[in-house]
Design a protein around this nucleic acid. Structure first.
Lengths: 347, 347
DNA sequence: GCCTAGCACTCGATAGAGGCGAGTGCTAAA
DNA sequence: TTTAGCACTCGCCTCTATCGAGTGCTAGGC
């Protein structure tokens, strides 16, 4: 990829166009670059270089008499080969940490807060994918009898994630008995990864069948039911949607509607974030690179977060392809690490 | 209020203007009314009537050569004195009930689903305010030791609402001991309204201080901590935001931004819904009547929902002042009742 | 006295014309 | 290889003219 742009000058021109475009959002002309980026060559020369870059597919002209705009490929090259990603400044980090003051007392709250932090520092939308239950480690299960034949199961993972399900059972069971089930299961499932729990339950059920212990087999059945669904699902927290309205390129309502539809639908974004979870490190999807979404001119910058060595979820920023990558990439990176640390320390 | 519009004809003209305006979204002229609403008078006569209605402040003219548009007051009069609210058709009801098929296994899910149902049937945004914990009845409390000195409290209300808090304690406590706390508190607090729990705990703490029972006083202290915060808060589920984008009057971005900001902020909407909870029955706020929000041209139609005789929360539809009240009012009403019934039956 | 036909008037919306200016590509000279 | 110069393109803005929906008013009819 790097070889695509031969020559120091070409690279600097590409960079200049992109920086200028990110700043202004309008096509940038040869004049502006010659002036502001001290390349000490005339606009005419810049024009020649630009024409070359256009031929390579890195820039493009909305119409004959307009300046140049970077293409997706141009941005990709810029990010991969030109942009030097710096650390976030100490002041920025401090400010981010400050945003979490006030104490967050639930994982859900912490994640939601994080989506807000991401959005407010990026001036774009921030997203946080909640951990899949199935990826976490069992901590505790609890049954509560709501009323006749109605039982609520509460499942707590080691990472502090709480999940509840309500379902009907054939014959009524007293709370005392439910408590017994709980104690039995809590002992049995301690420290198991949740995706192993199901197998373990089945295995155990075989044994119990043989032993004809009604109490235990009932407990196993119940917990099976509770785990049946939903442990594969993730939630998605989205903060700062309205920031996107400030981007001039979304003034056109049609574009906006598509993004907000995706926010409403969520599943597509969840898929994308999910996919980029295992990739590790900061991931960047420029425009149509995120094939899932039929959204040109929207970019994702994502990074997974974890607690200890449990990969939990993904967070990121959604904005126009024209966003300040040099600021937001380190922001996403730092936020993911900070969140991981907080999760590890508290939960 | 009813006296404002004297005469059958005036009333019919007002109604016609409003119906036509709701349908089309553009100012409606005398010609259209004379034609479509079979009043068997000429446009000129209609014009006279309209002029009267304008003087009364029920209609207004965007500019000299435009038709009339209802004012907020006009809509208010229409709703209070003219509109006859019908029942939802059997087919509609059936369809709404159908939307809930697929079984909902958590209160949160049920409420979220409801916001979607409201939005999809109204073609506007649907909102559901979750119950305040403090308004519900205690069912169960549970402590889970996450790691050294970190304890999670899980609180379950009779209505099936689960709430968790994580906090640090000064000295570590074993899970066994936490379980004892739980059993003690569960006995003590059974069937108490949550807003009474706090008082009860304090009261109990007095006794225990005297008795010097370390275990119990510790339990009380813990639960106090857990209840300290958050039980006064409500969540807000919003479904179908994007439906609002289809309303031509929100094509203007500024207006849209304000609404979406309110969605992001949530607190103002929560306040409004909260206020209308105790009012009972269907509530309608037209435009600036919802003083909290600086949003003209946005209306709220709300109704509280309950489980048994516990008032739990409020749900409703948010849309432009120009929305189909005759359809949405019964929709909101029916949905609230249906939700109440489902909550009662299941949780 | 109420209703209606007719008419002049208002005013937003739409379309076209003209001018402006940013930016280009090309050519020729340094 | 670079640059100055220049003709050319084309989106954008402004101005103007036209159109038409809708009004208010007046005068005549039932």
């Amino acid at each position: 990829m790097k070889g695509l742009v031969r020559g120091e000058r070409s690279r600097r021109v590409l960079e200049a166009v992109i920086l200028e475009y990110i700043k202004g959002g309008v096509p940038v002309g040869s004049r502006a670059i010659a002036k502001k980026y001290g390349l000490s060559v005339s606009p005419a020369t810049i024009r020649n270089v630009m024409a070359d870059l256009e031929e390579l597919g890195l820039l493009y002209q909305p119409h004959t008499s307009a300046g140049r705009v970077p293409t997706e490929l141009g941005l990709r090259v810029y990010i991969d080969a030109i942009l030097k990603i710096q650390q976030l400044s100490v002041a920025d980090r401090e400010q981010i940490r400050q945003s979490y003051r006030g104490g967050v007392s639930r994982v859900e709250g912490l994640l939601q807060e994080t989506s807000k932090v991401l959005s407010s520092f990026s001036k774009q939308a921030g997203v946080v994918l909640t951990p899949r239950l199935s990826h976490t480690v069992f901590k505790r299960i609890e049954f509560v009898r709501l009323r006749t034949s109605m039982v609520m199961t509460i499942l707590v993972s080691q990472a502090g994630i709480v999940h509840n399900t309500v379902f009907e059972i054939k014959e009524d069971v007293s709370q005392e008995e439910l408590d017994k089930y709980g104690r039995y299961l809590n002992d049995m499932l301690q420290d198991l990864a949740l995706h192993q729990v199901k197998a373990r339950l089945l295995e155990e059920m075989q044994k119990e069948k043989v032993l004809f212990d009604r109490l235990l087999s009932k407990a196993l059945e119940l917990s099976q039911k509770a785990l049946q669904e939903n442990i594969e699902n993730s939630e998605l927290y989205i903060g700062g949607r309205t920031n996107l309205l400030d981007n001039p390129e979304f003034a056109d309502v049609e574009q906006m509607r598509r993004i907000f539809n995706a926010f409403e639908e969520k599943s597509k974004i969840i898929d994308l974030l999910d996919k980029s979870m295992s990739a590790g490190g900061v991931n960047i999807f420029i425009g149509s690179e995120s094939e899932l979404l039929d959204m040109e001119s929207v970019s994702f910058i994502t990074s997974p977060y974890a607690s200890g060595d449990e990969l939990l979820g993904t967070l990121g920023v959604i904005g126009p392809t024209r966003m300040d990558y040099s600021r937001i990439i380190p922001l996403v990176d730092y936020t993911a690490k900070l969140l991981s640390k907080m999760l590890e320390e508290t939960f």
